[in-house]
Design a protein around this nucleic acid. Structure first.
Length: 296
DNA sequence: AACCGGCCCAACCGCGTTCAG
DNA sequence: GCTGAACGCGGTTGGGCCGGT
């Protein structure tokens, strides 16, 4: 049974906002500062709107610091790598992109970035088969070459990143083939969903990027101001760490980094699986539930 | 010019979480 | 501890826009 509607839908205006309504809302927020009670706002501001709708309008459109469009490649990369790490946690992803809203990031991913990833994947898949087939999987020869998977600037992050399936755990277990099972339920759900909607094998693990992939768009990006070092406590991340590694370097992710990443993953996946990952890094304790405070 | 289909984005919907009473 | 209201989030939808035919 669903919850009761927050307002009487029959009596409030719905649909696109008029400039007049925007102005009323803007004026109210300007003069009253932080909105404590969105449900009460429409009446106070003279708006015939649902409070929820007002909140959304403000957060997604009217806020003064909002940026619209014009995503940079660096932002693309942040979105992609975080999507790989934590799935469709848009609010978290958006929080790492100043001026971007979760709705905006979500729309951007669904309408553009995902396709960009697919296109890049096609390119790199062909390259892989034409020029680098037979090189095997850098994570371990025990893994059967997976079916074609997005291997793009985005899709290259779709392989198990340290944050979603740490190499420390993998190498410790000695069973690289168990990667699929290493995904947390929440991650699997995300990928499953992605698979259904995108009609593409994103749920499959990508093979390790080829050298060609390593030269791709993503690898050449500057990482100095990336967010992950901040998230894991200021550690200096190499690109290989962030991308899940390239070649042998991946297999030798140092324990400390792996631990930090496991902690990060545990923060995002507060479940038994995350606890298992975290436990593998001995000194890392998963949070009880919810996101790590540092991530919110 | 009219129609069509795909794209894009703002807005809506419903559910889980939080919190005050 | 319980309950219900409010909040926050992710998924989905509606409709305008635009390019192709």
């Amino acid at each position: 049974m669903g919850r009761a509607p927050c307002c009487d839908k029959a009596s409030v205006k719905r649909g696109p906002w008029s400039p007049e309504e925007d102005e009323l809302l803007r004026n109210y927020v300007r003069s009253h500062g932080a909105v404590g009670n969105w449900i009460a706002l429409p009446q106070k501001a003279g708006l015939n709107r649902c409070g929820k709708s007002c909140r959304l309008r403000w957060l997604n459109y009217l806020r003064p610091d909002i940026k619209h469009g014009g995503y940079t490649e660096q932002e693309d990369m942040v979105i992609c790598s975080l999507y790989n790490s934590i799935g469709s946690r848009w609010s978290i992803i958006a929080s790492k992109l100043p001026g971007r809203t979760d709705n905006d990031v979500k729309n951007y991913w669904n309408t553009k970035l995902k396709k960009k990833a697919m296109a890049m994947h096609q390119q790199q898949y062909h390259h892989h088969h034409n020029g680098t087939a037979g090189r095997g999987h850098a994570r371990g020869a025990t893994i059967a070459t997976p079916p074609p998977a997005p291997q793009s600037q985005c899709a290259s992050y779709m392989q198990p990143s340290p944050a979603s399936a740490s190499s420390a755990v993998t190498t410790a277990s000695g069973d690289a083939g168990s990667f699929g099972a290493m995904y947390s339920p929440s991650h699997q759900a995300t990928l499953g969903h992605y698979n259904v909607n995108a009609a593409a094998p994103l749920a499959e693990f990508s093979p390790m990027p080829t050298p060609a992939a390593a030269n791709s768009w993503a690898i050449n990006m500057a990482f100095e101001d990336m967010f992950l070092p901040e998230l894991v406590g200021g550690g200096d991340f190499s690109q290989a760490d962030l991308f899940g590694g390239f070649g042998a370097s991946l297999l030798q992710v140092q324990d400390s980094r792996a631990s930090s990443l496991q902690e990060l993953s545990a923060c995002y996946f507060p479940n038994a699986q995350a606890e298992m990952w975290a436990a593998a890094a001995d000194h890392v304790k998963p949070p009880g539930a919810g996101l790590c405070p540092s991530l919110t």
